[in-house]
Computed example of a mutant assay.
Amino acid sequence: MTAVVPSLTLVRRIKAAPAAVFDAWTRPEILATWWGPHHTRVLEAEIDPREGGRFRVVLVEDTGARHEISGTYAEVAPPERLVFSWAWTNAPERVSRVTVVLRQIAEGTEVTLTHDRFADEGTATRHRRGWTESLDRLTTRFGAA
């Protein structure tokens, strides 16, 4: 029997063109305005959005706790798709994958985020909460479609 590897998929409809939403994922100054759960803010963001390029984001919680995420882009297809690895600096051996698909709809863009290859269900649950709040912040930035 093959073990099921936990994953999550979230969908949002945003009132902005796919190119603007793609920029929100790939331009550090825009990403810093929405990335992370509600109780965090982006302290640093470095993004090289090309296949083989790397990203690094440092979040700081309201409590002062710092968290660093980094990864490498496997696919960059503006303004439709991003695929990148994801690892926390405190657990570099636990690499997961994020796929972001942007689809134009009449009202703007439908964003489908899939985060997979989690080590366990608890990790998937924590990431679901974080991505839900991040996508809520992204939707607030542009408006819901």
Results as ranks from 00 to 15, higher is better:
residue 1 M to V: 12
residue 2 T to G: 12
residue 2 T to Y: 13
residue 3 A to T: 11
residue 4 V to D: 14
residue 4 V to Q: 15
residue 5 V to K: 14
residue 5 V to G: 07
residue 7 S to D: 13
residue 10 L to A: 03
residue 10 L to K: 13
residue 12 R to D: 02
residue 13 R to K: 12
residue 14 I to N: 02
residue 14 I to F: 06
residue 15 K to D: 07
residue 17 A to W: 08
residue 17 A to C: 03
residue 22 F to V: 13
residue 25 W to M: 02
residue 26 T to L: 01
residue 27 R to Y: 08
residue 27 R to G: 03
residue 29 E to H: 14
residue 32 A to H: 06
residue 33 T to H: 11
residue 36 G to N: 01
residue 36 G to C: 00
residue 38 H to D: 06
residue 39 H to I: 03
residue 39 H to W: 04
residue 41 R to M: 00
residue 44 E to R: 14
residue 45 A to W: 09
residue 48 D to Q: 10
residue 49 P to Q: 03
residue 50 R to K: 11
residue 50 R to I: 04
residue 50 R to V: 08
residue 54 R to Q: 12
residue 54 R to S: 11
residue 55 F to V: 12
residue 55 F to S: 01
residue 55 F to M: 03
residue 57 V to A: 00
residue 57 V to Y: 04
residue 57 V to W: 01
residue 60 V to Y: 00
residue 61 E to Q: 08
residue 66 R to V: 13
residue 68 E to A: 12
residue 70 S to N: 13
residue 71 G to F: 11
residue 73 Y to K: 10
residue 74 A to W: 12
residue 76 V to F: 04
residue 77 A to Q: 14
residue 77 A to D: 15
residue 78 P to I: 13
residue 79 P to T: 15
residue 84 F to T: 10
residue 85 S to W: 09
residue 85 S to P: 07
residue 86 W to N: 04
residue 86 W to Y: 10
residue 86 W to V: 02
residue 86 W to S: 00
residue 89 T to N: 09
residue 92 P to I: 10
residue 96 S to P: 10
residue 98 V to L: 02
residue 99 T to P: 10
residue 101 V to M: 10
residue 104 Q to R: 15
residue 104 Q to Y: 05
residue 107 E to W: 08
residue 108 G to I: 15
residue 109 T to L: 00
residue 110 E to T: 14
residue 111 V to T: 12
residue 111 V to H: 11
residue 112 T to C: 07
residue 114 T to A: 09
residue 114 T to H: 11
residue 114 T to F: 08
residue 114 T to L: 05
residue 115 H to F: 08
residue 119 A to R: 13
residue 120 D to E: 12
residue 121 E to D: 15
residue 121 E to C: 09
residue 122 G to Q: 14
residue 122 G to I: 05
residue 124 A to M: 07
residue 124 A to F: 09
residue 126 R to V: 06
residue 129 R to D: 11
residue 130 G to L: 03
residue 131 W to L: 01
residue 131 W to T: 05
residue 132 T to L: 01
residue 132 T to R: 08
residue 136 D to N: 14
residue 139 T to I: 04
residue 139 T to W: 07
residue 140 T to P: 00
residue 141 R to I: 04
residue 145 A to T: 13
residue 145 A to E: 07
